[in-house]
Computed example of a mutant assay.
Amino acid sequence: MTITKKEVYSALHALLQEKQKAIEANIDQLKQSAAEDTKSSAGDKYETGREMVRQEIDKAVMMQQEYQVQMDQLNGIDPEERHEKVRVGSFVVTDRAAMFIAVGFGKIEVNGQVVFVISPQAPLARLMMNKAAGASLTFNGTPQQLVHVS
């Protein structure tokens, strides 16, 4: 693995910021759409449309809050800190995949390499906790060896 924890952290930080900006723009657009909607002679149709827009705004606000929680959790991690054993904020490379234990974000690409960003509460992360490079574990019937922890 030729990428560093700092590179993974920076890439994830940038992706979360992009998602936050996109959600903010979507909320603004939905609010503008709701404000421009004028009542027509088909009153029920208007009310249904407004309700749908309101529900979309509510969903977007919830997503915005979730991204903010993830950003807050990420900001609590020091990408310069070295870890001997797996814990929150560790960059872990096994013989099967690279993972950053931070937030439940999913698969990202960093310098052309796939990294799975997983929550510390994820079953695989829980299995890896407090293990050092060289340790073995079995997840979903598949053995894995920790190659690198930082």
Rank of each mutant, 00 (worst) to 15 (best):
Y67R: 00
M63P: 01
R50T: 06
G76K: 03
D58M: 14
T48K: 15
V53T: 09
E56Y: 02
L74M: 04
M62P: 02
K59N: 10
Q65C: 07
G76E: 02
Q64S: 13
D58I: 13
D78Q: 06
E51I: 10
A60L: 00
I57F: 07
G49E: 11
M52N: 11
A60S: 08
V61W: 04
E51L: 14
Q55E: 13
Q55I: 10
M71Q: 10
V61A: 12
N75D: 09
D58V: 13
M62F: 06
D78H: 03
E56T: 08
K59S: 08
E51S: 14
Q65R: 10
G49A: 11
I57Y: 05
T48Y: 14
M52Q: 12
D58E: 15
V69P: 02
M71P: 02
E47L: 15
R50G: 14
I57S: 06
M71A: 12
M71Y: 05
G76Q: 04
E56I: 02
M71D: 04
E56Q: 15
Q65S: 13
N75P: 00
Q64L: 11
G49F: 06
R54P: 00
D78Y: 03
Y46W: 14
L74Q: 01
V69N: 05
M52S: 12
Q55S: 13
V53F: 04
Y67V: 06
Q55P: 06
K59M: 09
E66P: 01
M63T: 02
E56S: 15
E47I: 15
V53N: 01
M62S: 09
R54K: 09
E66Y: 06
I57V: 12
